[in-house]
Design a binder for these strands. Structure first.
Lengths: 220, 220, 220, 220
DNA sequence: AATGAATGAGGATTCATTCAT
DNA sequence: TATGAATGAATCCTCATTCAT
């Protein structure tokens, strides 16, 4: 917490970078991305605006950094969860996967805006770094999935994770509309549009997993 | 096509409204939402900027109108497809569902920006109209699904469609990243991140459908 | 009230003109000039926007017409009042003058915006008409003042009225600030800035009248 | 005059603020308020548009700042003038008051638009600051008036100044109509509407002062 | 490394007025 | 005479980013 005034060595720099990301995360949990200004992030971090740019090349790079942190964090939690399972089934895996995501609204928000964020102001270097990280995490998580659940055809782990990841993104978008729409969704006659996020996610993921495991045999 | 200079009656007005939406759609297929200006839409429509505001209260309302058109269009196509099926299975339904979406990049783009569009400048009335329309379409499509595929437990049609819809949104986002990322994804060592959209969508949807049909019996 | 749908003869036209002015007056008593749109005036008058322009060349001309009506009305009331006085003195005249203005917030509002209104979009013809009317009214009122109050040097009636008129404009501006400032003025520690409009106006007018009557003798 | 490129310390900032106000004042003496754009002010100040907003929250705040400067300036000049008088009378005071205002067209313009300026975009804080300043100046000037002219009943100084101030505003409005009307007023047959501003102001102020001094005794 | 003043591009929206019907 | 759809000029303000200090 108590950061030196000047980050002289690399360790200090990393700590400051992390502190900025934390503040950005807090802000994002309160306001929409478009409503967050670099001035706010700077103020929350106790830094001057210009200083942010010593740590991140752009606003987009900053939030991409936050997404990377969240992704690494989540993949780690996911691996831990599925590795610790006493017994394994599509049902249980779906539940674990869902549970690992439930408490991560930040990750959901970030993934939803990923397109918008990167659509402007793309730093190729940062983009590559991001994709590389995502690929590595996916490989690792896919590998872990295959090893704990041998039913899954070899080599389909990463692809399966990717589909689950896609489902998560989409379902989150459907389940948590912007505040203005939320009021409308709360109406009785809109019940068809409401989603019990955790439950529906777990169930859908189970279905995807089940399908992935039996795809070849029961394909036709 | 040849619109009168002044839309005096209701029919002319609807035609003009539709013409504006078409031009907006064309623009959206070429540029990101944030890059499209009302001036461009007006110019493409051969109208003055102010005239657009006679037909749509805001830029957001305009694109929300486009999304509504696309949704209605898609749901209609979907209903037609699944009703016309000679035989029905999760596999076939998933393929039809996927096929009905494949040629609709606009719908995907619009759904992805739905959050961003409505996060500012929400006209409660328009929001309600949108959600009502979505609910009605969902009901109808859900009903159609149940009737052609009796395996599906009664009353779960809309929910099933909603999950498939969510998967579509998420998978599209994963499959079609912003152009800058697309270059990176094309690299050989990024193959794990690449998605064969149609195929993966069809397969995943089949899995969701299969799960939805057997959810109760094989839940545990 | 019941205007024909089409104003065919001149009488009908004048009636419609007057009706429009009345609606404009009502609107002005509720909203600031800048907040009133021609669309509102049209709607309040039960007419189409374009129709307004058959009666007034511009928004400014419309409100200038309203000011003319108010001025004529006020000058008539003023003449009546001072002619009806049983006895005459600076004190009494000031009171009558003040009383004649007190219930005319519209007149005050219009005079205050006269500059702004006419600063753009001046129709020379309308401007001349307005000034001619003002001059005539001033002459007449000045003459009436001189005749009921012989103490006033001959020929100084119009000029005296003009000064009183100026004081009214200025004091009204000071006494009735915009709503936002009104709240602040209500504070105890702002009492020096508050004005008891009627009382202060009557007193100041009395002073101007007294001075006008004794200007020559005690000038030096 | 030669401002640094960047105003780092408070002194530099005040200087820049003052420079902006000066340029705004120059523009206002040439064009109507509504015709002045922030872009013009920025260009005249040799600054970027955005920079103006570092110094003033809005266009309105900027011109309110200018009004404050003019008011402070004028009140100071007024106090100096009346304090320096060798002998004191309503006549002389009226002349001094008038003379102190004569060369301040900016002050007149600003006071006339005060309503319009503040009717939109009111920053409550700025409004309070303005009114507080006005009150303080009024108190001080009122006190000075009472002390140099003991004929004035104790405690009526501020009120008297306020009335004179009101007369100034109103007479200025009457005396200096918009350019379009000025042409008409120049005609021979409009002489009743013409005002010799300095002379009439001095005379009227003298009358107000005389009345204020003798109000109690010779009220009736 | 840190600051924060300066930049300036960028765009939606309003509304008085016109004119085809 | 009445309509109201079409016009299009007109402009304030935000905020990511830079760079002099």
């Amino acid at each position: 917490m108590a950061l030196r005034q000047r980050a002289r060595n690399d360790e200090d720099k990393q700590a400051r970078r992390a502190a900025i990301l934390s503040e950005a995360g807090t802000l994002l949990s309160e306001h929409a991305y478009g409503r967050i200004t670099m001035a706010q992030v700077a103020a929350a971090s106790g830094l001057a605006k210009g200083t942010l740019y010593l740590y991140f090349r752009s606003k987009e790079a900053l939030f991409l950094g936050l997404l990377q942190r969240e992704l690494v964090d989540w993949f780690a939690a996911l691996r831990e969860r599925i590795t610790a399972l006493p017994s394994v089934s599509a049902e249980l895996l779906g539940r674990e996967f869902s549970a690992s995501l439930e408490r991560r609204p930040l990750l959901g928000d970030l993934l939803v805006i990923l397109h918008t964020i990167l659509e402007r102001n793309v730093d190729p270097e940062a983009a590559l770094e991001f994709k590389t990280l995502l690929r590595d995490q996916l490989r690792e998580a896919g590998g872990a999935l295959e090893s704990v659940w041998p039913v899954l055809p070899e080599g389909t782990g990463p692809r399966t994770i990717l589909r689950m990841y896609a489902l998560f993104i989409g379902l989150r978008q459907v389940a948590f509309p912007s505040p203005a729409l939320a009021d409308i969704l709360a109406r009785e006659d809109m019940h068809e549009l409401r989603v019990d996020f955790s439950h529906d996610l777990a169930e859908s993921l189970r279905d995807l997993l089940h399908g992935a495991a039996h795809s070849l045999g029961g394909g036709a």
